[in-house]
Design a binder for these strands. Sequence first.
RNA 1: GGUCUCGUGGCCGAGCGGUUAGGCAGAGGUCUGCAAAACCUUGUACAGCGGUUCGAAUCCGCUCGAGACCUCCA
Length: 490
Amino acid sequence: MENNLVIYNTLSRKKEAFVPLKSPFVGMYVCGPTVYGDAHLGHARPAITFDLVYRYLKHIGFKVRYVRNITDVGHLEADADEGEDKIAKKARLEQLEPMEVVQYYVNRYRENMKQLNVLPPSIEPHASGHIIEQIEMVKNIQDKGFAYETNGSLYFDVEKYNESHPYGILSGRKIEDLMANTRELEGQDEKKNPMDFALWKKAQPEHIMRWPSPWSDGFPGWHMECSAMGCKYLGEEFDIHGGGMDLMFPHHEAEIAQSQIANGKQAVKYWMHNNMVTLNGQKMGKSLGNAIDLEAAFTGNHKLMEQAYSPMTIRFFILQAQYRSTLDFSNEALQAAEKGLDRLLKATETIHNLKTGETSDFNIQELKDKCYAAMNDDFNSPITIANLFDGVRWINSVNDGKASLKREDIELLKTLYNDFVFDILGLKSEEVGSGNDGLVEGVMNTILELRKDAKLNKDWTAADKIRDELAKLNIVIKDTKDGATWEVKE
RNA sequence: GGUCUCGUGGCCGAGCGGUUAGGCAGAGGUCUGCAAAACCUUGUACAGCGGUUCGAAUCCGCUCGAGACCUCCA
């Protein structure tokens, strides 16, 4: 299998040749959602970014185990007075069992992902289902002398760690700066140093979600789950760890430190971080109050949405930017994406109707090579898409009879667009109609026949009336030289 | 305050030392009964000021502006 893939590694801040630890197997871990609310446009970015990575790695022949966790314990509320668990807080507010809240939002998250055509990961472990593994890992770190206990909570000793391993290698931070600049937060008095992080937290009486441990009844620290579950399912060392840039510090930095101590080695070979989605130039975030839920984007039911945008429009829009760049949402940009996507998908359909020619006016093999080259260059989907649009123009011009392609080139195009548009970019045509297609087909054919007769009689009034009335029902009629066609417009 | 990233034509967004990115919108044309779609033609942009270089959007410095992280966050 040929592999010319290059990945930008946050750890080195450089593009590096992708060489898996145990080719052809690839282990990939991506930080998943905290299920205490609906997924918004910001969540779509990592999901789609790493879906693209997953799809492409598989496409070029790797056997990928893709692990994306569900965080359902342990994230503390910064603004809550007692550092209350987000899930527990939500549960209390809504008078539900915590796991009921978790299940509800997991279901909705999965539904959203399905709409976006994001493939399910190989394993979707819940943090709450891996408390034992996390406790074992914490014990391990404690045994090695890198943890200290205060009031039943256990903290990681960053200063001690830094003596043997630089802390901050991923985010480029220096421990001296961290010492000087970490803000004062409540509950910090239990720590020796402000940048120390919790491995285990003792539960306060009001905490509903709690588990027994050697130290106290409580819950694992925020960063433990990813280290423990990554190790359990992908091994002490694995290839790719992904997540949003905002998780780089402290979350991923803490993961690196924990795993280093627990297993004596760097757990991750390639760190990948997707950039943020912005709205009017500002990061979209739940706590910032400017998040647009995916549901709202899909339905257009939001004050900032001029219209509904289909999941595929959102997906295509995200893929039109490189994953390491910020991406700014606006109605104008989304509408442009919608039209572009439509053009791409239509041309992909058109390939199947192309008539074979004697000669080829376009170099399809070269187009194919360019598409792979773009993807191999750190998953550059915007360039890939630009190349595909070059092909779109060719396809349409062959379809117009203004250029020609030989049979084998048309076959090559079919494979190329099938591979890239559907398999790799994960786009798909919106499904239209439901169940009674045969009936609709028949009715439409009759209507188009009537209109054809009207046109033959030069009864333009009747012909236009049919077209206009159907347009009101979102059915668009197009006259081509081979007769009229119709389609339902979203 | 510290660390870091970014500023590209009307909009989104690639490129990162020398060739058209691409999409959307706009303009003109071909086709069409009229449309729509499609095709052809059309834009010469890289925050500002210096510097390096034969040559800079691309490298360096400064200025201005925006953003991220430093605290849960995708």
